[in-house]
């Protein structure tokens, strides 16, 4: 099978502290994969191990089925874009981009004319034509980011790795560059992994998202998969917003106290469980029904929608409920709540 990057049970220790605890992942050719996780989850460490900047304590990394240890850094041909770009500040933009080509052994080095042409093409690709004589210090953050990408692409990498590619940029530039990176990826077709702590970025850009927590991969899947079918409580709580409700599971029903609030048909376990409910998956109904009921404590604007906080007897935290525009509950009003969709993590069946 053709797998561009295969990561097998990689572990990495910093002193006694485990940064990666047995991480496995496969990346298909031309795929764009996001490594998403909170800070300290090990995502940057994983990227640096793949690049060969850190040496793993256990496990293997393979490129096109060749074990990475057999390859020198040069032969790995990895394009790496550092978080703060690591541009060579004493070199012009053109010299930065040409560096990897000029560093090749004499036999493999392109002619200086060929290098010049390649640099021109890359500048064109990253839309910086005309800036080749500038120094990194004379560029904006977004421009530096694009120089760093062009420099990494110059060596025709087999894999492109980006560490928080938009981390150092302000919000508007980030949005523009996201579109642009997606576009560049479509045109060049490089196998790409990027690290980010921003879920919007990961979900919008990536073909697949790998979610890391505490040195482990919690889930790998398409953006729709991880968002709609979270595999673990962590993913559930980390992606998007969720109400977490402690329930009792019995006979395929989730009970809050004696009230059945959600049919957990796929779970035959018994005992305490957690129900994760997104605010948009709770429907407000007239009171008096069989299910959940509560008192509206507050209504706030939340971007495009309005959101109510509903105090429910037996729950320490208020439930967040997104409101359709037609419904305007009064503060203090008693309402019924119907959970339309939820994810149950509970006693293993």
């Amino acid at each position: 099978m053709s797998v561009a990057v295969r990561i097998e049970a990689v572990t990495k220790l910093f002193g006694p502290f485990p940064a990666l605890r047995g991480v496995s992942l496969e990346v298909e050719p031309a795929e764009l994969v996001a490594l998403l996780g909170p800070s300290g989850s090990g995502k940057t460490t994983l990227l640096r191990v793949i690049a060969g900047l850190e040496e793993q304590n256990g496990g293997r990394v393979l490129f096109d089925d060749i074990e990475s240890h057999r390859l020198s850094l040069r032969d790995r041909r990895i394009g790496f874009v550092f978080q703060h770009y690591a541009l060579f500040r004493h070199m012009t933009v053109a010299d930065n981009i040409a560096y990897g080509l000029k560093a090749r052994p004499r036999r493999e080095r392109p002619s200086s004319e060929a290098i010049r042409q390649r640099v021109g093409q890359l500048l064109d690709l990253v839309q910086l034509t005309g800036l080749e004589k500038r120094f990194p210090g004379q560029l904006s953050g977004g421009q530096r980011q694009r120089v760093a990408l062009a420099r990494a692409l110059a060596i025709e990498p087999r894999v492109l790795l980006l560490d928080e590619p938009f981390g150092a940029l302000d919000a508007r530039v980030r949005k523009d560059l996201r579109q642009w990176l997606r576009d560049v990826h479509r045109r060049t077709g490089h196998t790409t992994l990027f690290v980010t702590h921003d879920q919007d970025e990961a979900l919008e850009l990536a073909d697949r998202v790998a979610i890391l927590n505490d040195g482990r991969i919690e889930q790998v899947g398409t953006p729709d998969d991880v968002y709609d079918k979270p595999a673990t409580p962590f993913v559930c709580g980390f992606l998007g917003e969720s109400n977490r409700i402690g329930v009792e599971l019995a006979g395929g029903q989730a009970f809050l106290g004696d009230t059945p609030i959600f049919p957990a048909t796929h779970n035959n376990g018994r005992g305490a469980a957690d129900l994760f409910v997104r605010p948009q998956d709770v429907r407000m109904e007239p009171p008096g029904g069989q299910g959940l009921a509560g008192v509206v404590a507050a209504v706030r604007r939340h971007g495009a929608i309005r959101r109510a906080e509903v105090a429910v007897a037996g729950l320490a935290r208020r439930l967040d409920v997104d409101l359709p525009s037609a419904i305007v509950p009064a503060i203090g009003e008693t309402v019924g709540l119907k959970i339309v969709r939820a994810t149950v993590f509970g006693p293993s069946a």
Binding site: A86, R89, Y99, A103
Partner: peptide
């Protein structure tokens, strides 16, 4: 060490990295 790492990732040898990146810096 980020600039040195970048140079090595781009295929430069140790000496080349020292002469073209570290020393100028």
């Amino acid at each position: 060490a980020a600039e040195e790492e970048a140079a090595l990732m781009l295929g430069a040898s140790g000496w080349r990295t020292f002469w073209t990146i570290t020393l100028p810096n």
